[in-house]
């Protein structure tokens, strides 16, 4: 048995945890993104080589993960703004979170084919 159990927070706490996690993931993406894009100023040939290594299903799946992280962070960010500035925000925070999750699921379903089509064609033909 550990020294203490995990605090069993509810929607508010876990949405905050998810907001932090997605925020850090997006930061790491931006870090890599700025580096590889800056490379085009140094050597366009090397830039092409680096970008060519991204063209595989694993990185494509990570792109889909990036869409997931950004969508959640953006939508939950709007919820946090509502909690901050709308007087009834704290009262409806739970409903707003489930709306965020609902919209997130719909947008993720919508992004599935556009984002992953290259890999789908590579892996399953046609």
């Amino acid at each position: 048995m550990p020294a203490g159990t995990l605090y069993r927070g509810r929607e508010g706490m876990w949405s905050w945890v998810a907001h932090r996690v997605t925020g850090v993931l997006i930061f790491f993406f931006l870090f890599v993104h700025v580096l590889d894009t800056a490379l085009v100023r140094v050597s366009p040939q090397d830039y092409d080589k680096v970008v060519a290594t991204y063209k595989n299903p694993v990185v494509n799946l990570m792109e889909y993960g990036l869409v997931a992280a950004i969508l959640f962070h953006a939508l939950n960010g709007l919820r946090v703004i509502a909690v901050d500035f709308w007087s009834k925000g704290p009262k409806y925070q739970r409903q707003m979170l489930w709306s965020v999750v609902g919209i997130w699921v719909v947008l993720m379903a919508g992004a599935f084919y556009p984002v992953l089509q290259h890999s789908l064609h590579d892996l399953f033909g046609s």
């Binding site: 509810r10 508010g12 007087s87 704290p90 009262k91």
Partner: peptide, 26 residues
């Protein structure tokens, strides 16, 4: 305050704690 709402959920007196904090912020 990061509006995690743990305080509101935990209050045994049912005080809307996060709401009070937000009112002070505003």
């Amino acid at each position: 305050c990061r509006t995690t709402f743990n305080c509101t959920d935990a209050c045994p007196r049912g005080i809307e704690v996060t709401k009070a904090i937000q009112e002070v912020k505003r």
